[in-house]
Design a protein around this nucleic acid. Structure first.
Lengths: 244, 244
DNA sequence: CGTGCGATTGAGTTGGTTCAAGGCCAGTGG
DNA sequence: CCACTGGCCTTGAACCAACTCAATCGCACG
């Protein structure tokens, strides 16, 4: 479908992420290309996984955003984590695990089964899983100890880092398809307050936010301001070399 | 050391938890008994794992409580999760992973290496890991969407459920070695406000709290009040049958 | 008999919520 | 072509849950 000589791991953002997490051999590459053939698509708002239901096989997000969320009895909703292109869902060790949260598509979604036959792919899955956990911990400190403004900045920095792994960040600008009310559910705030906080950030020139995209004007400045550190999970420096 | 005919999985609370998570065979039992020989102890406040440092082999908490915490630049601290007897730390899939958070002993701690040679033990580790993740998600909704009182109740219910797996709960009463300021770091509150919220709970007769122990007066009432659901990770009903 | 840590209390402040309108599209159907 | 609808964003004003600051108390320990 794309240029023949070029491996899919370079042309598809989601695959670039996997290639950044582990060194993929030729066979892994072929398996991914094969998996991409069986991709399916999902409409916004559709559930990709339901809390309490058995988890299907591991699935790779090819494009679009999703959210791992839990709904409380009285209608409150908390989004535990965002799921971005290249992320895996249902990536766990057990035989027949039950989902501990729902996963819902935040926009149009494309996904395919995630093969994990080769050692390289298994490694990529393991690293991806470790990163997922790191993101959960980051989310906990955000909610527990950061102010509204800090939460917002910290989240944007995390998303930037994560999208950078797939090569979806240029000049610190990237997609931002989040509704303010979805954002509120991520950050544990009200939509109204998210709105006001966003305005503050725009007003101070820290971010530019229009038409479903953000640009961070001074990422490293912001990072030191909120004490953000990029999640690292392996000791090798391999991942760093991959982002162009 | 204990009665000869009785397997260690019944006499040691931490082992009872593992036995509750997977059906342990005789060999697993022997391995645990062997591991217990190599137990070591740790003083309160000591770090069991340091953020950014490589993770040692999987370790089992035999007794005492610990906390997985992250410290912010300005001194704020967030405890991501409590680590209780029978819990595993450093229980992950990777070769040489880096710790994404520190683990600090909240009191006197006893621990031993956690063997995972047999299939049964591997299974127990996998289930334990899945539960850990479920607790992280619970922590996120607590911090993001629950009020101070709800957070406190929900946490107490979680701890009760978890300690029950080791048989450390009698009549809904169990150990509660948490300082109010540690509790504040868990719940994302200030110590002062934790104090006031605790008084409220005591005043309303919902909990009795003295001398490092809590008793929940109406756990199921409390559970429905805060929408607490006990984490379940496997579809089999086996785990339920184990708690006496 | 200090000394220090943890729990408690009071009074004032604030970050974030709530409630309630309005505004701004993009899509839809007449 | 325009009116109508439904999401989503924006704004204002009042309110309140939780925070801050600062003392005081109780107690275990040396």
């Amino acid at each position: 479908m794309k240029a023949m000589g070029r491996p899919v791991t370079q042309s598809v953002p989601a695959f670039r992420r996997l290639a950044a997490l582990a060194t993929l051999d030729l066979q892994s590459d072929r398996l991914l290309a094969e998996a991409a053939m069986h991709s399916r698509s999902l409409q916004p708002g559709r559930e990709l996984l339901t809390e309490g239901a058995p988890v299907p096989g591991p699935t790779l997000i090819l494009s679009g955003w999703a959210a791992r969320a839990r709904l409380l009895a009285d209608g409150r909703r908390q989004i535990m984590s965002l799921i971005l292109p290249g992320d895996l869902i249902g990536n766990c060790r057990q035989n027949l695990p039950l989902a501990v949260s729902s996963v819902v598509a935040l926009g149009h979604l494309t996904l395919c089964p995630a093969p994990a036959i080769t050692e390289a792919l298994k490694q990529a899955h393991a690293v991806s899983h470790a990163l997922d956990e790191a993101y959960l911990l980051a989310q906990i400190t955000r909610l527990g100890r950061l102010s509204a403004e800090e939460r917002l900045i910290d989240l944007m920095l995390e998303v930037r880092d994560r999208l950078a792994l797939c090569g979806l960040v240029t000049d610190n600008a990237f997609a931002w398809p989040l509704t303010q009310s979805a954002l509120a559910d991520v950050l544990g705030l009200t939509p109204v307050h998210v709105n006001r906080t966003l305005q503050q950030l725009r007003g101070s020139g820290d971010v530019i936010l229009r038409a479903g995209r953000v640009q961070l004007m001074d990422p490293s400045g912001l990072a030191t301001r909120v004490g953000h550190v990029t999640a690292r999970v392996t000791s090798d420096t391999e991942a760093a070399r991959h982002d162009r």
